[in-house]
Amino acid sequence: MGMTAHARTEIVVLGGGYAGLAAALRLAPQHRVTLVEPRERFVERVRLHQVAAGQAGAVHPYEKILAGTGIRHVTGRAARLDTAGGRVEVETNDGQHLDLGYDRLVYALGSRTKVPALVPATAGTGTTRVYSAETAADLATRMAGRSGKRNGRLAVVGGGLTGIEMATELGEAHPDCEIRLLTAGSLAATLSEPARRHLRSTLDRLGVRVQEDAPVEDPDEVDADAVLWSAAMTPTTGLAAEAGLALDEHGRVRVDAALRSVSHPEIVVAGDAGAGWRMACATAMPTGAHAAGTILQEARGAAAPPFRLKYVLVCMSLGRSDGLVQVLHTDDRPRDLVLTGRPAAWVKERIVSSTIGLLSYAARHPAALRTLLF
């Protein structure tokens, strides 16, 4: 799909996470960009296990990140997508209703923890016993207020990378709390055996009891004072489905090689909402940068190149003094090469810090985002 520079100038980006922010920053020098994101601060999702443990420093004001970029930040939620008219209806945080027109749209609404429907998705009342990464701050408040045996037993449901980071961080921060990690299958099944051996050793050192082959359908099944649900992620694609965008069998938006929606090519998709790659920060920013590149190329009348992603590694925090770096084949299969302990914790911290660092730098030098592309 080609387009001329004067005809495609209004860009709306839905979602201000890693993918949406990367796309908006790369597009801003050449287009008028509106970022629709209800939060006033960018949340480092990869640090939410630290938030759950009561540590600060995982949020950054959008006002500061976007200063001088020309990007308009609308604090609100996209309520309806009119693809035929090229418009987005937005409900702002202060109760207004905006109708935003677009020439191209970046769909980057990401994903959220797939919590069973009967469980409240947010805390707020102080009476819930079930938490997720999205309510990590509420869990931190509860853990900080423990006294005696009250709330002394915590169950983390989900033996993937998120659940492991949560369990180890909380185990280190609250050594007096009885913590269990429940997983439906094997612990960290996507990692190599050397990596899993280190994980088991670390969890044992921190006093976290692991129960494998222990599927949980309902948090009420779990005998614990509090439950941290980290079992699965689900894409935030309800808006896309209602607008008629084609989805795959997992509910993610189907895209072509250039990350355009296969049913609505005026819409490009980035981050966890798109089909074809693993849900992760490591894929969010490259897809965001490439989605923006597709729009920039087509604005010049050029063909957009295909998106190519080569995996390098996956890294994990295991508390503040331990970590794990799993080296990967380019197709995301694990190698037997792993880095552990304090050196791995140092690498993990450098990578996490460089992520927000690159986004902040890209606000002044958008071309830097091209370094994410292979």
Rank of each mutant, 00 (worst) to 15 (best):
Leu309Tyr: 15
Leu181Glu: 03
Leu247Asn: 10
Thr237Gly: 05
Met279Ile: 08
Val255Thr: 10
Pro306Ile: 06
Leu313Arg: 15
Thr202Cys: 09
Glu298Pro: 14
Ala240Gln: 07
Arg180His: 04
Ser263Leu: 14
Glu266Ile: 04
Ala231Arg: 05
Leu182Lys: 10
Ala284Lys: 15
His198Ile: 08
Leu181His: 06
Thr236Met: 02
Ser230Leu: 00
Pro219Asp: 03
Ala270Phe: 10
Asp220Ser: 11
Ile179Ser: 02
Leu247Tyr: 13
Ser186Glu: 14
Asp225Gly: 08
Val222Thr: 01
Pro175Arg: 07
Ser186Trp: 12
Ala184Leu: 01
Ala189Met: 05
Asp256Ser: 13
Ser192Arg: 15
His264Gln: 08
Arg300Glu: 10
Ser201Gly: 11
Ser186Cys: 06
Leu191Val: 06
Arg252Val: 02
Gly293Thr: 04
Arg200Tyr: 05
Leu199Lys: 10
Asp248His: 13
Glu249Val: 08
Asp272Phe: 01
Val312Lys: 14
Ala284His: 12
Val262Glu: 10
Asp256Ala: 13
Ala289Cys: 04
Ala214Met: 12
Glu242Trp: 08
Glu212Asp: 05
Gly271Trp: 02
Asp218Asn: 12
Thr234Phe: 00
Leu247Met: 12
Asp220Leu: 09
Ala270His: 10
Cys281Gly: 08
Trp229Gly: 06
Ser201Trp: 04
Ala291Ser: 09
Ala303Tyr: 01
Ala243Arg: 10
Val314Ile: 14
Val269Phe: 13
Gly207Ser: 06
Lys310His: 04
Asp256Cys: 11
Ala292Asn: 10
Thr237Asp: 06
Ala299Glu: 01
Leu199Phe: 02
Arg308His: 02
Gly271Thr: 01
Ala302His: 07
His198Lys: 15
Ala282Ser: 12
Leu247Pro: 08
Leu245Ala: 12
Gly288Ser: 08
Thr236Asn: 12
Glu249Lys: 15
Ala243Ser: 07
Asp223Ser: 09
Cys177Asp: 06
Cys281His: 00
Ser261Ala: 14
Arg205Leu: 05
Ala231Tyr: 02
Val208Leu: 01
Thr236His: 02
Leu318Met: 04
Ala289Gly: 07
Leu187Ser: 00
Asp220Ile: 04
His290Arg: 07
Ser230Gly: 05
Ala303Gln: 11
Thr237Gln: 09
Gly274Asp: 08
Leu245His: 13
Glu249Cys: 12
Ser317Tyr: 12
Gly238Asn: 11
Gly301Val: 03
Asp204Arg: 15
Glu266Thr: 13
Ala188Ile: 14
Ala226Ile: 07
